[in-house]
Design a protein around this nucleic acid. Structure first.
Length: 644
RNA sequence: GCCCCGGUAGCUCAGCUCGGUUAGAGCGCCGCCUUGGUAAGGCGGAGGUCGCGGGUUCGAAUCCCGCCCGGGGCUCCA
């Protein structure tokens, strides 16, 4: 007996010799998993099968199938409207799907996209059956060559399989592994999102393809919700919100692309973040250092960076000597270490710097604060003995977790990049070094109770690393912290210590940046909170708001009290209606408003309004301060003091 | 770097196809009136090198070319 499980959990007994589609309620599933293998619903059940699981849009496989068929509908629509278009590839992606077309040099206009979308709807209405067909590879090559689909022929020629599958719907046929939906009519709500360009197989030496992106859903409501969410994400774009809240700007036409100027309010937040970082690092046994922004290019020749990093550096010449603006802080920290002979007793030595660096990133990769040309790393280099490596890694991860939680991030994903053991000759350092280092990384993560993914062969030539990604309030992942071991620089700079037995040994170096770059982290934080920073980070923590001008005197007294309590507060000037001024402060995202009117002047109280919560009622000013003091403070200064 | 799209007031945008009054709107800003109780009170005013440079034309925000900057992608991210 073959069990057939429907998406709603019900189980049927499958009949041999009939397709899955015939045996389930109409449109109750999209695709099926037969003994772990994905198949079309039109697949015929045969002997020897154990379990069949029908999947709907709630499963990743269901969505992928849905979007994959949608991409075929897109391709079919394009072929109908632009018969000369040559098909590239058209996969489902994380959200939706795309298809690449070679239009022989032209591109799609917005009107074209609308027509394509209309044609897609027509194909859906036609409710064409989607039919799988298997054929020999040679036969397929002949078929696609006869259609002029040169890219499909190219793909086929590179395949190993002797038999390939194609899918037909109406007049349209495409090379495809599948699986697919049984009918085009299964796609209920669709939207062509935008067009862009991409190179055939992602290689810029290849022809340019026009890539059309789309999304589809089983109901109009879901499509609407998705489009609204997209709009939400767009609205919390730090490049829009930042200047809107007067935090920073990037007047690239005046100062060049990828450079930031911090306005007073943004600078306040940044200063709070940086002070917090410095205090915490000092508490955790780091020493604070500073290093210059420029140096002889030779310094990076020694580090070996110059060779392949030169194009990313700002290089200039003075009195016949080549200088460069620093693209990284490591060599300077090494020089601090090397300023004298070091004993094993001094290790681990942890040097921390908010180091501003400049990198000439290619113009196409710049993206607001998230990818800038000038940025400040929360950079540290730890010099340690091999014996203390694991303990150090553990401490770094612990610090990282503390920082992330302090900023309101709860969910992390950890990856560890290791070498490729089949090609040890491509890596710096001995096999023994690598194995010990990699197990130290893994051991530290296990001790911390983290789950992690091992990315074999992803390590840099000079050492393995740990990457930490965090998940923000709307589910997006951001690569943030990196903890990178380095066997290379200590050798190049001859960074050594005298061990207990009097012998000179080479240190192991850990590069680590936990927020990564202050700019980038700030951008992520801004999008995470959509501008509504928690109280300890808000640029204006509280605003005193007199109802009328006659309340200004009392309002100033209240303001003075707040300021002397160390709260970042300001005063509204009482011009305009109260409602208008409250709206202004709400839009500025000021977390706390203290309203002062006749009643408050009379009673000596303040009326507290919390953003998002509305009017909390009146309370005594001192009572207010007692109640909120903790929340006004950075996490490490709460509860009397001490990080832990 | 490459491909496509875009750049008009501080901001968001209309006007550009098809060249022709004094380039508009809303928000913001400034002034006056309004003295108010928890998300928009009223009236008036100022504000523009239409990204920059060149060309076509009697005439260019509008058409053409080059450059700069931005956006979406590709690639890159030691």
């Amino acid at each position: 007996m073959v069990k057939l499980r429907l998406p709603d959990g019900r189980e049927l007994e499958a009949k041999i010799g009939e397709s899955i589609l015939e045996q389930i309620p109409p449109e109750s599933g999209l695709v099926a998993k037969v003994d772990g293998r994905l198949v079309d619903l039109t697949w015929i059940v045969h002997e020897g099968v154990e379990t069949i699981e029908v999947l709907d849009f709630n499963s990743p496989e269901g969505r992928e199938t849905y979007w994959h068929t949608s991409s075929h509908i897109l391709a079919q629509a394009v072929k109908r409207l632009f018969p000369e278009a040559k098909l590239g590839i058209g996969p489902a992606i994380e959200e939706g799907f795309f298809y690449d077309f070679d239009l022989g040099g032209r591109s799609f206009s917005p009107e074209d996209l609308e027509r394509i979308e209309e044609e897609m709807r027509r194909i859906v209405r036609e409710n064409l059956p989607v039919v799988r067909e298997e054929m020999g590879r040679e036969e397929a090559i002949k078929l696609f060559r006869s259609m002029g689909e040169v890219y499909k022929v190219e793909l086929l020629e590179e395949m190993d399989e002797d038999v390939v599958s194609v899918y037909r719907q109406g007049e349209f046929v495409d090379l495809c592994r599948g699986p697919h939906l049984p009918y085009t009519g299964y796609v209920k709500a669709l939207k062509v999102l935008h067009a862009s360009s991409a190179y055939w197989r992602g290689d810029e030496r290849n022809p340019v393809m026009q890539r059309v992106y789309g999304i589809s859903f089983p109901t109009e409501e879901e499509l609407k919700r998705y489009l609204k969410m997209r709009e939400e994400a767009r609205k919390r774009d730090h490049r829009i919100v930042g200047p809107q809240l007067d935090l920073f700007s990037m007047p690239s036409e005046l100062i060049g692309p990828g450079l930031v100027i911090w306005h007073p309010k943004g600078a306040r937040i940044r200063r709070v973040i940086e002070d917090f970082l410095v205090r915490v690092h000092l508490k955790w046994g780091y020493e604070l250092v500073y290093s210059p922004h420029i140096a002889y290019t030779n310094l990076w020749r020694t580090s070996g960076h110059l060779n392949y990093y030169r194009d990313f550096m700002y290089v200039f010449e003075k009195e016949g000597i080549e200088h460069a603006v620093k693209p990284m802080n490591c060599p300077f920290h090494i020089l601090v270490y090397k300023s004298k002979r070091r004993s094993y007793r001094e290790l681990p030595m942890r040097l921390f710097e908010l180091g501003t660096v400049y990198r000439y990133e290619r113009s196409g990769v710049l993206h607001g604060l998230l990818r800038a040309r000038g940025f400040t790393q929360d950079d540290a280099h730890i010099f340690t003995t091999p014996e203390k490596l694991e303990e150090e890694i553990f401490r770094v991860i612990e610090l990282d977790e503390y920082l992330m939680r302090s900023f309101g991030f709860e969910e992390f994903k950890v990856e560890i990049s290791t070498w490729d053991p089949r090609r040890p000759e491509e890596y710096m350092g001995s096999e023994e070094d690598w194995i010990r280092a990699q197990s130290a990384l893994e051991e530290a993560l296990r001790n911390k109770g983290y789950e992690y993914e091992v990315m074999e062969g992803e390590a840099a030539f000079y050492g393995p690393k740990i990457d930490v990604k965090l998940v923000d309030s709307i589910g997006r992942e951001w690569q943030l912290s990196t903890i990178q071991l380095d066997f290379n620089l200590p050798k190049r700079f001859n960074v050594t210590y005298v061990d207990a037995d009097g012998s000179e040994k080479t240190v192991i170096m850990i590069h680590r940046a936990l927020l990564g770059s202050i700019e980038r982290f700030f951008g992520i934080l801004l999008e995470h909170y959509a501008g509504n920073f928690p109280l300890w980070l808000a640029p204006v923590q509280a605003r005193v708001l007199p109802v009328a001008e006659r309340h200004l005197d009392r309002a100033r007294e209240v303001l003075d009290r707040l300021l002397s309590a160390g709260i970042r507060a300001d005063l509204d000037d009482a011009r305009g209606t109260l409602g208008y001024r409250i709206r202004e402060s709400e839009l500025e995202k000021v977390p706390i408003l203290l309203v002062i009117g006749d009643r408050e002047v009379e009673s000596g109280k303040v009326a507290v309004r919390r953003k998002g919560k509305g009017n909390l009622g009146s309370m005594d000013l001192e009572e207010f301060l007692r109640e909120f003091t903790e929340e006004f403070l950075p996490p490490d200064l709460r509860g009397g003091s001490s990080t832990f």
